[in-house]
Amino acid sequence: MTATNSEAVLPAQGIEAPRSGRIDPKYLRSSASSGSFEMVAWVFMRVSGAALVVLIFVHLFSNLMVGEGIHQIDFAFVAGKWANPVWQFWDLTMLWLAMLHGTNGMRTIINDYAEKDSTRLWLKSILYLACAVIIILGTLVIFTFEPCLLDDAGNLMDYSPSFCESVVN
């Protein structure tokens, strides 16, 4: 720009800007996001998806195919499994991955389909709350699970797993 152009009428001085500078505010990206959250989320979806396939199918196999199959499932069966730290870890991983995977999927769907920011905020708040409740509850159950329950008389409940006999006595 040359010095002689000082009196040029520029958009800032009250003249409407050329359209090339005028953009519907709806399309302006509010701020550049920092970090790589979306990338991590994207990778997580793929890794957790693959892990869940293994976790879920082994879970289904051990519950439904091995031994008596579907007929063996009762309180005792579950209690028996969770007495084993391997299964505890297995189910914990499955719970966390499945919940985070599903929640992130829902988050994406809300992002893609909710058109208003406020709608989005509400839906996501509910989603995250639900997710947190289920994860916390599930984790608590896995770690604080009491397999050998006694009735008022101090006897083992009759659906207790067999190893309780030795524990109680």
Binding site: R29, A32, S33, S36, F37, E38, M39, A41, N111, D112
Partner: peptide, 13 residues
């Protein structure tokens, strides 16, 4: 880096 934005490539379905 620009396309690593939350409105970048990761929104592609």
């Amino acid at each position: 880096e620009i396309l690593n934005d939350r409105e970048g490539v990761w929104r592609c379905r």
